[in-house]
Design a protein around this nucleic acid. Structure first.
Lengths: 278, 278
DNA sequence: CCGTATTTGTTCGTATGTATT
DNA sequence: CAATACATACGAACAAATACG
């Protein structure tokens, strides 16, 4: 009938946190103190804390204590760019916009590989499954914090036709879309993004330093870009940890002063175009 | 040095699930059997199962057993519509597209309220904080399953200027954007969506019948729509459970045959325009 | 650098409650 | 009603991480 005790304890702590009696960053009472206060066993208190952890409200630090979590200032990625006008390639835009917000972007040199297309990649690029594709994998950091993992796949055919820089393991400063336009006269006409939310895999948990209990999910965007013939040029898969990212989509005519959306927390946020190529 | 035992057990079960040795829907061995197999205590086995639950890989049913989760066939919401051409209003499109996919959409009559704008709403609608706004709240179901919760806010000024139907608690079949265009000659020129992923609140957990341990997050989109003067017409806040929804964004010219994205599971998926007004 | 106290992490055992079949 | 299986709660012990003198 009544809630189990560990839930009652958890709800009481939750109330204190949401009422601000326990500020972000504040330390909760130790398990032994809570045990006395609620007249429960240590394991029951720990179940209550676990419940709060799952909801992302507190975190425990071995040897130190339990603390109310500090919200991370979110970063906003705009998924719609201007496909008609010149720069369809967001790489450079990304870097400058982030810098404008006084946040330091970093993008280590990409890891370039030649591999066989799996069925998803082959389907998106409209090439036979198992045919060769160039993959360019890149980590993006903001203020030394890993912000996204990105892998772009290009059909090998583009390299054969002369876009040899795709295979070099360094940044293409002008952006790959501009490079393809200059080299092969391939014009990127548009793209389609699909967005899903899922649990992080082991790699992502490590890269993003996520708590390894998987409670923070990741957002995966899959962008298939097409040329003016309607043929796919590239597939870019980006993975973002959900706790430090927001996304924006602009459609139609908007007033220019529409800048940042109200952010979920009190601290400031930043905007940038999506760095959707690697 | 080594992983704790509960993690080792969890990883072993995880491997079996990902290798397909334990198919979706299959029952795991009972806690007592696992206890014998891994030579651990029941509590340790339960810790391992808990770890898998947090990751959404298994679910427990009291009195029955532990089962590998069945993936839900995802529903795709397209966030970009055609802002220039006629139907900027997705309500009707939503219904017809869902039906075309042989999935039964339902949208009970909206709950209409007059309330004071909080700071977020006021900021988006560019009205003074505390001024009156009309809120239209709607639940959307697909195949009897709650799929999204939606609340649209309109400045009271629109009602004063003659859009009285906004305050009636019934569906506006033509869609509110078309209604506003017809009645007040207000043309919706575009919108901006911001997308965030967060933990569900109590209401959402109940409505979507989510497991109350909060491991499944929700996607919240906030759509601010503007008229051709650049003035905000409405703010629509939609909340989707992340386990049964995907999103799509189309930019520029795309080949028409670009239909469904490859879905995360083996079952079919469906597409529809966003039902972003209520 | 070392040792000690504090605090959380892991693992066991046991008993009882609740839901399902 | 009984058997089964998971849920909650207690107590205890030792390990590991951290802070501090």
């Amino acid at each position: 009938m009544v809630d189990p005790m560990y839930r009652q304890i958890a709800e009481d702590l939750r109330r204190q946190i949401e009422a601000g009696e326990l500020a972000p960053g504040a330390q909760l009472r130790t398990e032994l103190e809570l045990r006395e206060k609620y007249n429960a066993s240590r394991n029951t208190v720990r179940d209550a804390v676990k419940w709060l952890i799952t909801r992302g409200m507190v975190e425990t630090r071995p040897g130190q204590g339990t603390y109310v979590v500090q919200k991370i200032s979110p970063f906003v990625t705009t998924l719609t760019g201007d496909a008609a006008s010149g720069g369809n390639d967001e790489g450079p835009v990304y870097a400058s916009e982030v810098k404008a917000m006084r946040r330091k972007p970093e993008a280590p040199a990409p890891r370039v590989e030649i591999q066989q297309a799996d069925s998803d990649t082959a389907g998106a690029l409209q090439v036979p499954e198992g045919s060769m594709v160039v993959s360019r994998h890149q980590r993006r950091l903001i203020d030394q914090t890993p912000w996204s993992l990105q892998t772009s796949f290009y059909p090998m055919k583009l390299v054969e036709r002369g876009a040899t820089r795709l295979m070099q393991a360094d940044d293409i400063k002008e952006g790959t879309a501009a490079y393809l336009a200059r080299t092969l006269q391939i014009k990127q006409a548009g793209w389609r993004d699909t967005i899903i939310v899922r649990a992080p895999d082991g790699d992502e948990t490590r890269s993003f330093k996520l708590p390894d209990d998987g409670r923070i999910s990741v957002v995966e965007t899959r962008r298939t870009a097409y040329d003016d013939q309607g043929l796919p040029i590239r597939l870019t898969v980006s993975v973002y940890p959900a706790d430090r990212n927001q996304f924006a989509v602009n459609v139609g005519d908007l007033p220019s002063q529409v800048a940042d959306p109200p952010s979920a927390d009190e601290s400031g946020s930043s905007t940038a175009e999506a760095g959707q190529d690697a």
